[in-house]
């Protein structure tokens, strides 16, 4: 799996795919695209990196526990829904918008970003789980 060609291509592709994933995430605002697709594209980049690199290096690169990234994404999504309740009369998940310099920003974007993080975190958890050696099972109770 770990050939020279794959390693060198990944070096270039990794950044490119990540940029593309963010573009897809933001494009989802008004056109087809969005957090889930963007997250999937980003997790392709991460999976490529996991294939060629040592899992330890990947963990060092992403800095946080991927599971925590997913949890943070989930809390962002919930938070974006709560903003709908807190700011004036709406119900859970009703959209709120602000306009900064002609660009409309709103809670749906926050929600999408949360979904993005969840997908990246979850996929990375699974991929790392497969690549890393199995943890030693607890000694007691296994016959």
């Amino acid at each position: 799996m770990n050939t020279l060609i794959l390693r060198e291509t990944t070096r270039v592709l990794f950044t490119l795919i990540l940029v593309f994933s963010v573009a897809t995430l933001l494009r989802g605002h008004d056109a087809p695209g969005g957090g889930f697709v963007g997250g999937l594209i980003a997790s392709i980049a991460c999976s490529l990196y996991v294939f060629v690199a040592d899992p330890k290096d990947v963990r060092r690169l992403v800095r946080t526990d991927p599971l925590k990234t997913a949890a943070a994404g989930l809390s962002l999504a919930v938070l974006s829904g709560l903003i709908g309740i807190l700011s004036g009369g709406g119900t859970f998940l009703s959209g709120q918008w602000v306009e900064i310099g002609g660009v409309k920003l709103g809670t749906p974007l926050l929600f999408d970003f949360g979904v993005y993080l969840v997908v990246v975190g979850a996929v990375l958890t699974f991929v790392l789980e497969i690549k890393e050696p199995a943890p030693e099972p607890p000694a007691r109770g296994d016959k």
Binding site: D65, L67, K68, A70, A71, A72, L74, S75, V78
Partner: peptide
Amino acid sequence: PLACGILGLLLR
């Protein structure tokens, strides 16, 4: 419960 589950994940 779902929110507390997420919080629990973050507190790992």
